[in-house]
Every structure is written in C-alpha cells, then in structure tokens.
C-alpha cells in the first residue's frame, strides 16, 4: 500500500490532498502516476511535476515499495 500526497496547485488540480493506492508493487513512480489518472478531476501530464519518496527527491523510474510515502508537487517557490 502506498500513501500519496499532493501539494499546492497539484492538490487543487487532482482534487486530492492525499490518496491511498493498493495497486501492484513494485512499480515505478511513472506507472503509479498513470494509475492515479482515473482519480484525478482531469488528466495531468508528468511535465513540471516533481516526485519525492519517503521525503527525498527521486525520479520517475524509482521503484516504489509497500509502505512508501509518495509525494507529487509542482516546482518549489520558497525563499
């Protein structure tokens, strides 16, 4: 099972702050993103989406494991 977080404009575009995914694992972050599309208000491309797993930046090919915390968010704008 994966716990998924969305932040900022992606939270609004997806219509979710958090989701739980119980699909087959391991899978890449890219496969998870495709799997989640059915739960979004409208399809969202990977472009300009950043991925973090267990609170560390990673890439779309990262193999997700049971219990991972996955976060998707737009480019950061702090400071």
């Amino acid at each position: 099972m994966l716990k998924i977080h969305f932040f900022a404009s992606l939270r609004e575009r997806t219509g979710h702050a958090t989701l739980t995914d119980t699909g087959p694992l391991p899978c890449s972050a890219a496969v998870l993103w495709e799997r989640l599309q059915t739960q979004f208000d409208a399809p969202i491309a990977q472009d300009a989406v950043m991925v973090a797993v267990n609170q560390h930046y990673t890439d779309w090919q990262h193999a997700l494991q049971d219990g991972d915390e996955v976060a998707f968010f737009p480019p950061v704008t702090g400071g």
């Binding site: 404009s9 968010f73 737009p74």
Partner: peptide, 27 residues
Amino acid sequence: MEALKSRAPFWKREQLIDGTQRWVEKN
C-alpha cells in the same frame, strides 16, 4: 539561499488586490 530556492518544498499562493488568488509558478 540559492539551494533553498531550488530544493526546499515551499509553495507561494498570492492574494491579489482584486481578490483573486494564484500560485507562483517559478522563482
């Protein structure tokens, strides 16, 4: 400062004088 700008996960949402809100898309 530059590392914080590009790596720290913060996002700004602005409130404009006309009452609308928008996300800052990039630094």
